[in-house]
Design a protein around this nucleic acid. Sequence first.
RNA 1: GGCGAGGUACCCAAGCGGCCAAAGGGGUCUGACUGUAGAUCAGCUGGUGUAAUGCCUUCGGGGGUUCGAAUCCCUCCCUCGCCA
Length: 405
Amino acid sequence: MKTLSVREQFEILSQGVLDLVTPDDLLAKLEKSNQTGKPLLIKYGADPSRPDIHLGHAVCFLKMRQFQDLGHEVVFVIGDFTARIGDPSGRSAVRSPLTKEEVEVNARTYKEQVDKILNPAQTRVVYNADWLEPLTLREVVRLGAQFTVAQMLERDDFQKRFAGKVPIYLHEFIYALMVAYDSVALNCDVEMGGGDQLFNFLVGRDLMRCFGQEPQVCLTMPILEGTDGQAKMSKSMDNYIGVTDSPEQIFGRVMSVPDEVMGHYWTYLNLATPAEWARLKEGIDREVLHPRTVKLDLAQRIVTWLHSAEEGKRRREEFEKVFTRKEAPSEICERVVSLPLDLASFLVSEGLVESKSEVRRLLKQAGIRLDEQPIPYSEHPTLNQFQDGAVLRVGKKKFLRLRKA
RNA sequence: GGCGAGGUACCCAAGCGGCCAAAGGGGUCUGACUGUAGAUCAGCUGGUGUAAUGCCUUCGGGGGUUCGAAUCCCUCCCUCGCCA
């Protein structure tokens, strides 16, 4: 397809991947597609109970986009079957089952976000309940007969939990089989996901063989660290940057990423080639480039990508204004208030602070300011006067402009 | 089915009749320093507030003993392990 040779396609597609099982299979599939003119089917399993897409997902989507640009087709498998059953194993969160309607709403939200990165014309959405629901117990048991418990326990996650005496539920094995069966149902060519999915993908590969299909290529991408630089990016860790977050949020969150993982953001998100990043890194190490500047560039690039060049520039200026020069942001929510103002109740009702006790705590620690002057602690903090347009600031990031009635 | 070990706040984990809103660590948050990074230091970390040895909620659920229970008893639920 297009003007690129199979070899060139392969080079592009295999760049930056974490696992590729196997390179030869991918080459063969590309070759076949090239000859028959039939696009490859790229599968991606989406969890409809978590419709928020963040930069961690984007690492995969960008790779999928490359496939699309080479003429291939992406299929999102919405895991509505499992979502509608619910997952009782979650120790922390009790994942309650979703209704059909909720799944549909989430799937639509999902698609909208995905369209920011992928080409909608080459993106298909399917629901796995369509083929999982009709399976009989007989068929499920037969699927189970293809694998041994020892094979299942090979999965890193299971192994750790088993060793750590953390419960592993039987249905988790079954879920792994179902993900694999999705691949059979679709007869897909490539399955894509994060590095932690490799095991599931390999199960799919084996299962396809059992069904006499050409086994899928398993392609995983490196996991992007969250803004804490530690755990992988995820909503539950609250260390994520959503693709639909506001430009301001995105910019701020990127700036809070530790320097050590900044390179991953640059390279995993295709904002720099490894060579380009190496050059930036060298500049930082030789102290000709300030790491902050490199991060500002990064934040600007990401905002530009997910919003617009104009926003990117604006956000950068705004950031420098607020945090480098410590000025108030140019856009602040305004509230008309009347005096005297019960500060604690006001801050809580405005949602700036969780509770009145916290207001007290913040006051004690000089964390609430009026026009950059810390408000002194008192048991019943009351504002008796202020200049019209004065700026109330809570911590580093929350601002509110006060207007007189 | 039998035996044993467990279930404590956002997470890990101590406590095992009152001084327990519950040690310690991690994380969050605030302040200093700074580059809204990291490191470091200091502080905070259930709510309410006539400010207090007060009240309400919180030590798996329910019930009981007691002036008083995270702590003792009963019962139920759940997890882990060993043996069947």
